[in-house]
Design a protein around this nucleic acid. Structure first.
Lengths: 258, 258
DNA sequence: CAGTAGATATCGCCT
DNA sequence: AGGCGATGTCTACTG
């Protein structure tokens, strides 16, 4: 099984190629002059131009121009692709429910259609995420402060789950919020909510400390932290080189799913 | 000028096709069996498999598998694409500075290479955004509450710009925060910051009211609003059908940039 | 299914 | 270049 490509096909031939590709579960690309209409969570319209349409067997649709990382229009996974010839144009419609939304791509000219059989792994191993930072804090709690003792991760509160919950050298409860990169005011607000929620939950109205752990903070975030009596500790996620090699091979295997 | 496609090219032929396509400013697709390494803001590794690589003339690189809307790896616009043959494989490297990051895609087999000359519009018209909701509030302030009088949009405060600032029937200052969809605790925090900032700025320590305008709120957000003495008004962005037709044609023209 | 928060978020605007 | 907030954010996870 191999790549199938048509150059400047008739709409009818393109339709048949697309139908067959959907049937096979291929990844499809269509390059041509088209207009695009979207209606759903919002609504949008895109005038004529040459674009690359990508149709995935999981129901994803992407319309790309020659600029930007973000597609100019799209449909999320779980949509259903259908193709038809209407008013002398090739119409590709991708539709889903919950939420109800629809993407219509109408080609007045198809320059190329390709059907690509995709196999192999799609599990990417990423390092330097917030989870890596959490690992670092759990293995070296003194990086937060001397004698800090982590007690739980993802501890549930009325305001949501706390990244790391523990106690300081004097036994006071400490809420740690982790961010993998420089943070703004939103993170200060988030930490503040957790601290307030825990102050209500802790039985003996003991003070709860809040510590934001991140590489750095903006000025406004620093002010907000100060207002709320929260603290900041500068710490970065471990670099990929420090981290990647020391991983449990049993969980780190490159799962290549079905 | 037209589409150029190579099937199962040698690495050398693929390299030349890619170099020529970069030179022309074409959009490029490469389908083949590859591994992918990324290092920059984070770091990642992806084992062998068939993927679709998209290279845009603006420096964007996208690696797509047969699943998900989000590329499995990517490089943002402004990167520089380079191609070479190394160790018997075709290596496409996309790199940028600030931040310093790099994507390497190494093909052991190239199934197809296409160079697509892209022309035409890329300006999409979206309706149902927060700006449309703001328009609705400015044209019909009574939808917020009777005799609400908007005074400014994007009014600057120490905590950032306020969506709509105005006064109620009794002359009290009102901060309106707009959200195009159902909101969670973060929006309540955002509105609270604006209200606090304005209470300090307003000369005669007058109370400042805060009103969140959105289609709906989560329970937790509702609690937070209540705690902070903030209010909620249910309002949606105008539907596309209501909105799109009544637009100033002088500004609403479908600009198709250079 | 809704709620919640992370992300190599991306993107645009403004200082 | 950095700060800040919107996005049709997307995505994973949890109840």
């Amino acid at each position: 099984m191999s790549v199938t490509t048509l150059h400047r096909p008739t709409h009818r031939d393109a339709l048949e190629a697309l139908s067959a590709a959907f049937e096979r579960g291929d990844l499809v690309t269509v390059f041509g002059r088209c207009t695009v209409e979207y209606d759903g969570r919002a609504a949008s319209s895109l005038g004529p131009g040459d674009r690359l349409l990508i149709l995935k067997p999981d129901g994803t649709a992407l319309v790309h121009t020659d600029e930007q990382r973000t597609p100019v229009n799209w449909q999320p996974p779980g949509s259903e692709h259908r193709v038809a010839v209407r008013d002398g144009r090739l119409r590709v419609r991708s539709e889903r429910e919950t939420p109800d939304e629809r993407l219509d791509v109408r080609f007045e000219a198809v320059h190329q259609v390709s059907a690509l059989p995709v196999t192999g792994g799609r599990a990417v191993d990423v390092h330097g995420s917030e989870e890596d930072l959490r690992q670092r804090v759990l293995e070296h709690p003194e990086l937060v402060e001397p004698r800090f003792e982590p007690a739980a991760t993802e501890r549930e509160t009325a305001a949501g789950p706390v990244d790391v919950f523990g106690h300081d050298s004097e036994g006071r409860p400490v809420v740690v919020e982790l961010k993998r990169r420089r943070v703004g005011p939103d993170a200060a607000g988030q930490l503040g909510r957790y601290v307030e929620a825990l102050e209500r939950e802790v039985p003996d109205g003991a003070d709860v400390r809040g510590v934001l752990v991140a590489p750095s903070v903006t000025d406004r975030a620093r002010e907000l932290l100060a207002e709320k009596g929260l603290e900041f500790v500068s710490l970065e996620p471990p670099a990929a080189s420090e981290n990647g090699a020391i991983r449990d091979p049993s969980t780190g295997s490159d799962a290549e799913d079905a």
